[in-house]
Amino acid sequence: MNNAHGTGLYMDHTGRLHRLAAHSKLVGTLGFVAAVVATPREQWWSFVADGVIVAMVAVLAGLPLGLLARRLTIELPFIAFALLMPFVGNGPTVRLAGVNLSQAGLWSAWSIVAKGTLGVAATVVLASTTAVPQLITGFERLRVPRALTAIGAFMIRYLDVVTGELQRMRVARESRGDRARWLWQAKAVGAGAGALFVRSYERGERVFLAMESRGYTGTLPSVRRGDEPRHWAACLAPAALASACAIAAWRFR
């Protein structure tokens, strides 16, 4: 599997984490994020510990930490928002480098940045070690309604087909002198979008026919298999450690 469309953030190699069951990883990630969110923001050492946990998991997974850091940039817009908070917050202020900053705002900003970064880091590790189809299967095994997982699966499958069609239409349009840069050329783009919609709709019908021909009667067969306790133990370990940190943080508050 290469890293083209549809596989997105997935890093294709066989690390320890790659082999673990997707549904266990999903629960583990969710548990970790919940523990981080539940940690009181004043206990900064607890967040440091959580950070070490994520970094260790990433190292175990064979993910380069540089890559992890680059992918964290996705949260920059949120950080920008968080950085505004000390300037607009109410209540007692502290004077820092000649500027009055709200104490409550500072705490909020810290909380958003710390918890956000840890949460994003955990999901980046999940997304880098689990291929999208596995994630879908994982959701299925967690009893997420089949209709939702099916929509996800179809979307991933046909995203490529439809983008491919869109590309070919664009190339064909541009080959006939269209540059789609000026407003008066929007008509061609609009017509193209319309054609693409109709084509996708027709494809939907054909896909349905092909499914019916293979005995589809309205429910997708599910692919549930037995659980592996080992996988669960490995996937829940980071969440358990983070929960321990959170509990300790509450006690020593």
Binding site: P133, A153, M211
Partner: peptide, 16 residues
Amino acid sequence: DDQLFMPTVGQDVAFG
């Protein structure tokens, strides 16, 4: 592309 709609080849062959 009309016939293969599952995320992986194996899952698609298993569908029928």
